[in-house]
Amino acid sequence: MVAAARVSAATGPATDFAIDVRNLNKHFGSKHVVKDFSLQVAPGEIYGFLGPNGSGKTTSIRMLCGLLRPDSGSGTCLGHDVLRETAAIKREVGYMTQRFSLWDDLTIRENLDFIARMYGVRERRREVTRSLEALGLAARADQLAGTLSGGWKQRLSLAACTLHQPRLLLLDEPTAGVDPKARREFWAELHQLAARGISVLVSTHYMDEAERCHRLAYLAYGRLLATGTPEEVRRARPLATWSVSGQGVQRLQEPLRTAPGVDQVTPFGNTLHITGTDAAALEAAIAPWRAQPDLIWVRTEADLEDVFIHLMDGTEPPP
């Protein structure tokens, strides 16, 4: 299932990967939340981490940064053992939590100053001021962090987790609930960081963000279902897709959904996306409506969302 597995040096002592882990497992009580998780992230790579809610993304990220101890498995994070050298990992990794987790009752400057102290940042005051200016928050430095809007909170968190110049960033749904402009700016910043050689593992639910990653991993029910570049992930699934648009296209939804050979029917405004694994069967299914003059049929490529929904439907949830 795993597409394009890369050669890993996990078996040898040294590794060039920022993250190189093999077969990590984690249980919470009787629940097996992460199953045989293996991942290699190269320096300067932005690695997208996708999957439905509760699929084990946060747990995997927490295992990588030493917040949770894997039950089994092995590997390294920035060359440090994920089981034994968590203290060293914590010093060199920047971790941004899913929820805003800086202190609401500290000001923006106090938050950054505290984080800088925790990491023993040299020339702390200067670094904090520089960071505030880069954020564009210098004028509001004495405002309580709790009063910031969602977009600003997320930028402040990013600034906080990059203060100590980490070589690896682990970002857990950093752009959830953030407006498109702020998200775009955020991703521009990520690419700048990556250009400087910093590796980024970022979890997200947004497909446009997935497309901006160098590589992707798709996790469902604790198991990695696909990895590779966005192109590879798309290609690895032989999905046939048709898009149909025109007057009253919605009426096709119900009959198509139940037609043999059709896996998904997804409406996008006045367009429907129809996907199936078998191209011939799909064509047969849509044949009755092909000739209608007010409908425009186009054969397209399955997008990432189609692929992921297909992946998820094909996996049974554990009993």
Binding site: L67, Y95, T97, M118
Partner: peptide, 10 residues
């Protein structure tokens, strides 16, 4: 949730 932040630091 700030404890997670604290734990993530050294």
């Amino acid at each position: 949730g700030t404890f997670e932040q604290l734990l993530a630091t050294p």
